[in-house]
Design a protein around this nucleic acid. Sequence first.
DNA 1: GACAGATGAAGGA
DNA 2: TCCTTCATCTGTC
Length: 175
Amino acid sequence: MKNHFVELPVVTGEGEFRARYSEKGLAGLSFPERRRPNGRKDISAAWGTAAGHGQLNRWHRLTQAALNRVLAGRAPGRLPPLDWSGATAFQKSVWRELLKLAPGVTRSYGQIAAAIGRPRAVRAVGGACGANPIPVLVPCHRVLAANQKLGGFSAGLAWKRKLLAREGVNGLSAE
DNA sequence: GACAGATGAAGGA
DNA sequence: TCCTTCATCTGTC
């Protein structure tokens, strides 16, 4: 069967993110781009039923609230259902572990690897973080390399640094 | 299968 | 302390 995706803008103080929804929940989140956003797509055409439309609006409100809270350095609170279909079991276990991290709490790739029972899969954890379709809400920015180095970030280290600073994490090594 | 990667640890200068 | 090298594990092509 074919999955329908709907992309909606999420307005925050940091710019306009774009949330992508499937019929199962939030499937992706993109950082603000330089280009002017397209705005809202035709929801009714993509979504079909009125019930789905109402559900989408509910999810989107949750996403907006959660995103703004995280950007303010607070816990996201209630999240919409996350659609991780297509992800591997390993990636999901990494992302589930990330969801447990409170704001301001950081872990190294090695610690995440150990937490999911694969202490030597550190590089694979990095790969899973990079494959994370829902940055910010799945806080891959709270994963640092050893020695508090920044490591990497799919959307750019500037975002990672900014997000961590909002949560009160300072003193990061320049990397 | 081969290869690359958002790592980490160890060893040498 | 910094730099280089290598072991390790998973995902992707």
